Amino acid sequence: MEHGSIERELYVDAPPQVVFDVLTTPEHIRDWWSAETDFEATPGRPGTLTWTNQDSGVTKSVPFTVVASDPPHTLSFRWTHEDGETAAPGNSLLVTFELTPAGEGTTLRFRESGYRERGWEAAVLEEHYNDHRQGWDFYLPRLAATAKQAAGAR
């Protein structure tokens, strides 16, 4: 298997501005990604995503840095780097969301890349790749459902 990037495309039954808001607003991020965060969608701005295991109470925080933000068209960020490091190619993964109007809704193109560039040994690379692939396959449909619900509330 190649393990270079994870790419998905899905239709979201909400306009691009609503989808962008769902990607960047803490209360919406909590709904679809189950993470707490507080950040500005401004290039260069750092943030943290924090997940809490509801059964054990254990929390896991992951730093990220916004790379690009062009509302309501594009959002990208780097994450998975060590806390205290500056996120850069080679020490982080790059996540990009591209939003294109499609009728009354949005075509969302998602890509997470940078796996091979991390320099992980094959087994570690495969483990991280599979973990993220399964995660995005779970969370992206939730993002679409949250956006659809948010569009209906407007």
Score class of each variant (00 low, 15 high):
92 S>R: 02
123 A>W: 05
152 G>W: 13
133 R>F: 11
143 L>T: 10
123 A>R: 15
43 P>N: 02
73 H>E: 12
86 T>S: 02
31 D>H: 11
73 H>P: 02
58 V>G: 06
97 F>W: 14
148 K>H: 12
17 Q>A: 14
29 I>D: 04
96 T>K: 10
145 A>P: 07
57 G>S: 01
27 E>W: 05
128 H>Y: 12
1 M>A: 12
81 H>A: 01
22 V>F: 04
34 S>L: 08
147 A>M: 15
90 G>K: 01
22 V>G: 13
107 T>A: 07
123 A>G: 03
116 R>G: 04
104 E>M: 13
154 R>E: 12
28 H>W: 01
62 V>R: 00
116 R>F: 00
24 T>L: 01
25 T>S: 10
68 A>P: 11
152 G>P: 11
72 P>S: 14
24 T>Y: 00
44 G>F: 05
58 V>S: 15
2 E>M: 04
52 T>W: 15
120 W>N: 06
16 P>S: 12
111 R>A: 15
131 D>K: 03
142 R>M: 12
137 D>F: 03
124 V>N: 14
142 R>K: 15
144 A>H: 06
7 E>P: 00
135 G>Y: 08
43 P>S: 03
73 H>M: 07
127 E>D: 11
102 A>N: 12
32 W>S: 11
12 V>G: 08
22 V>P: 01
116 R>S: 01
41 A>W: 07
18 V>A: 11
59 T>F: 10
71 P>V: 11
42 T>A: 07
98 E>W: 00
21 D>L: 08
40 E>P: 01
64 F>G: 00
11 Y>F: 07
42 T>S: 03
13 D>F: 03
17 Q>S: 12
71 P>D: 14
29 I>S: 11
10 L>I: 05
94 L>G: 05
67 V>G: 09
151 A>Y: 11
151 A>V: 15
15 P>F: 02
77 F>N: 07
88 A>E: 12
112 E>C: 13
132 H>S: 14
95 V>Q: 15
88 A>K: 15
109 R>C: 00
110 F>L: 05
5 S>R: 07
116 R>C: 00
153 A>Y: 04
103 G>I: 06
63 P>S: 06
47 G>D: 06
70 D>L: 05
121 E>C: 00
1 M>D: 11
5 S>T: 01
87 A>W: 00
35 A>E: 14
47 G>Q: 09
116 R>H: 11
29 I>A: 13
24 T>P: 00
102 A>M: 09
94 L>A: 07
46 P>N: 07
18 V>Q: 06
131 D>V: 05
30 R>V: 01
29 I>K: 13
100 T>G: 15
32 W>G: 13
43 P>I: 05
97 F>N: 01
23 L>G: 04
96 T>R: 10
149 Q>T: 13
6 I>T: 00
2 E>T: 08
121 E>N: 02
38 D>A: 15
